[in-house]
Design a protein around this nucleic acid. Structure first.
Lengths: 208, 208
DNA sequence: TTTCAAACCAAGCGCTTGCTTGGTAGATTG
DNA sequence: CAATCTACCAAGCAAGCGCTTGGTTTGAAA
């Protein structure tokens, strides 16, 4: 039943895990991170206690600190692994897309799938729990985000060079960031609109 | 130095205050609400303690509970007054705008001014602190939000009826909600782009 | 069979949290 | 001038918080 997209996502994930860049989601630590993403997204970082997190993975609250030094480190790990994973997914998607329109659409679909799919909760954490991250954590995540954003800007600039869009790529990207991340609050894949249709509608925002 | 927009905002504010619908910002309670909006926006509701709030208005922490029954009631009040104020501002703006394009632009400028201007912090609270509100509070605010959103949908539908935009008004509004609210994280009025230019760029997202 | 590290538990410490209490200074009113 | 009311203070309580500690289980390697 796995779609082509899901297969590639699995491959990208496996490659990152074996390279040691992100935690294996099947490990104890990996499950902890998944639960953390879920709780942080739905209750917020501050409202989620280490006791909540511990009981949702079925261990004692103190045992968490065998895997992480602090609660803040958990938040940082969720964000870091999410951005690394999604950057890799985008790179993979771009390698099969040609022409500015297709490449932009590929990025949009990629980001929407991240937001809506398996890592959607973690993506939400990345966007909405920014303030809760410590200063040092913020600096590290920012570097990773710059890489991610640069990929977007390059494609938007390419689209502009071909006259597909009139506006400033920076402004376009920022409008898109807001519009796409907000979809998590209202879009349901089971509804009348498919994710591909949503991606096309989003593409129409920036192309004339 | 007050612009025409600011004058009308003052008039709308005064009308609401004298009708008792929102708290006078010059009163002790009003200042408390303003400080709360500021702190909630920048530190988040959970991270803001009643002691933080009290010291930022120069009173003891316990004294807050003379004005509000609970911390949650403060959050609710910030949201309620903000949405009431901005609904009134939009109604006022629409009363001077004619034709679908101008009316849509008026709404966009209105929302951007709310986000960027004096009540910007409170608007941010309304968007990003939703989860922290109690269930009963959420239900009350939702009713007020429906009124606000209905105004948007009516104008987007009117634009569609005239063939100005191809897509579903619901989807358009949701894209706009995300794109506009996100501007608070990156747009600076002192930068190279004016707020009016930003509004035009946002309008271009939904009009073809 | 022994060794040893990783994973976890049970208990609780020190601190902060939202909120309560009982009381007071100062303006307003009959 | 007494009575009332609004706005506040000083002190602290009970609960919940992140995190620590010392010890136990477990499973694979030697």
């Amino acid at each position: 039943m796995a779609s082509h997209d899901e297969q590639q996502a699995q491959q990208v994930l496996h490659a990152l895990v074996s390279r040691g860049e992100i935690t294996d989601p099947h490990s104890a630590k990996g499950k902890l991170l998944q639960c953390a993403a879920h709780l942080f997204r739905h209750k917020g970082y501050e409202r989620t206690t280490v006791r909540d997190l511990a009981s949702s993975v079925g261990i004692q609250s103190g045992s968490i600190f065998h895997h992480f030094k602090s609660k803040d480190e958990i938040l940082k790990a969720v964000m870091e692994e999410t951005i690394l994973y999604n950057t890799a997914l985008m790179r993979e998607a771009l390698s099969h897309a040609h022409g500015p329109r297709e490449r932009l659409l590929a990025l949009i679909r990629c980001e929407l799938q991240s937001i809506m799919g398996g890592t959607g909760e973690a993506m939400g954490v990345l966007v909405y729990e920014w303030r809760s991250l410590s200063d040092s954590g913020r600096a590290d995540i920012l570097k990773l985000r710059d890489v991610y954003e640069q990929m977007w800007l390059a494609e938007l600039q390419a689209a502009r060079d071909e006259g597909l869009t009139p506006s400033d790529p920076f402004v376009q990207r920022r409008f898109l960031t807001g519009a796409l991340s907000w979809t998590t609050t209202w879009f349901k894949a089971e509804g009348s609109m498919s994710l591909d249709e949503l991606a096309e509608a989003a593409l129409a925002l920036v192309l004339k």
